[in-house]
Design a protein around this nucleic acid. Structure first.
Ligand code: MN
Ligand code: MN
Ligand code: MN
Ligand code: MN
Lengths: 242, 242
DNA sequence: GTTGAATTTTAGGGATGGCTAAGGGTATAT
DNA sequence: ATATACCCTTAGCCATCCCTAAAATTCAAC
């Protein structure tokens, strides 16, 4: 199926025929960052540097190494894109990350904004066996607590048909599907407004002038969000189960 | 309470006043190995090297670094012992390790011999918060699946009053409390003989000549163990709950 | 088309934590 | 007391992955 860059073997010397050494946590986080950024074409050095809070020169260095490992295609000054091998590795990590977040929230009583940081470390330490047994333990969830889809074992990812609340129109009955950023302050505000994934709401007003969105929750309370915040809340028509 | 080597801060430069940077996974594994070996005084370079499958020269190097970090006392050619700070760090890891093993076995359906390897990695990635929430989730267990006591949050460790099956005498009714090694083949044999922690057995014969021990399980089946194996199974009088 | 700002790369350096090879130290048996 | 086997340390090396400072490139505005 893949014929891009050969195998993912990393060690310089010949190791076994099928040995796929799993990348270090650094490499893994780079792959995830590039994957997340590459919806709009190649990812730039600066984008990745900003996202990972690492200097541009370090990123530039790593780009060369990712190319040498067969995980990415990269040309000087031209940005980077993942190979099929790199994409699969990124999705493997994403699957772990989102399953772990689900476990932390549902089983260990983590709060909404604590889960991401812990998952960011654990995703690199758990084995494939652990991941699949955890998935089973959790009942094979399809979305993480933020509403993001959990990639399948084989790297499949459900297409996302949600849209930002900012683009809704008054009168629509919608279900919160996913929230964008995962920083604590944002999550705290959203939680206060009852805008966590799964919640159903009715749009009362979308004011074109300044983008203010007013919604009414199922409890009848109304909340108003500024445009930027309404851009980070993704919704779908309130029909299917969340 | 401690006045041995000062704080555990590791970075060379001044960081916060109370900053206790948690050791890398390498350092942590060294501390655990030294702790486990130091029941008989100072741990030697070779003992640690063998246990961690690392070259002696690397170990020698690390001993110097552990001393500089205030985690151990060490003199050239004289072996190494942990400071109070080092001991607490080792027990902190041991607590994590054993809680994680319990979780893997009880919740994720890991087999007896799979748990150790996974825990050996995860112990370095989980946070204090994770550890304590996991302990709560598991109902604050006091022993891991191998029967080893789980250290308390504060580094307390229950004294171990078990003894090797090899030192039992015929007629005794005993409860398996703990098994020593954690390699897959040994555990497989023990599992086949129904000698996992918690099982109750009656000693039928202990042959002084070659150390052969014959026991009868609660199901009436008898099993015979060679001396070396009987040395690795630790038992207690079968009275209290396991 | 030149220029200037932003981005990217290169050069050089540091911490961690492995390794092998070679040289010292210790202890035991003779 | 000395030989010798084993253990321990030193020296020198490499890989990973981060950094700062300086040089190179790109791109857009003029
Ligand atoms: Mn996350
Ligand atoms: Mn991560
Ligand atoms: Mn274990
Ligand atoms: Mn470990």
């Amino acid at each position: 199926m893949i014929s891009v860059g050969g195998s993912v073997s990393i060690g310089a010397t010949m190791d076994g025929p099928q040995t796929v050494k799993s990348p270090s946590s650094s490499v893994g986080d780079y792959l995830k960052a590039i994957w997340e950024l590459s919806e709009e074409g190649a990812a730039s050095t600066k984008d990745v540097a900003d996202r990972l809070s690492i200097s541009s020169s370090s990123v530039s260095n790593m780009f060369v190494r990712l190319r040498e490992m067969g995980l990415a295609e990269y040309e000087r000054y031209r940005g980077i894109t993942l190979t099929e091998a790199g994409r699969l590795e990124a999705l493997r990590l994403l699957r772990r990350h989102r399953l772990i977040e689900t476990f932390l929230l549902e089983c260990l009583g983590y709060s909404w904004d604590e889960v991401h940081e812990e998952a960011e470390r654990l995703e690199h330490s758990v084995s494939d066996v652990y991941t699949e047994r955890l998935a089973e333990f959790l009942g094979h969830p399809e979305h993480d607590p933020h509403g993001d889809p959990i990639p399948g074992k084989d790297g499949t990812l459900k297409p996302d048909d949600s849209f930002p609340l900012a683009e809704a129109t008054a009168g629509q009955r919608l279900r919160v599907f996913r929230v964008g950023p995962e920083d604590a302050p944002t999550l705290a505000v959203l939680e206060g407004s009852g805008l966590l994934p799964g919640k159903v709401l009715t749009v009362r007003e979308v004011r074109a002038l300044d983008g203010l969105v007013t919604v009414e929750g199922e409890d009848g309370k109304t909340h108003t969000l500024g445009g930027p915040l309404a851009d980070t809340v993704f919704v779908r028509s309130a029909s299917g189960g969340g």
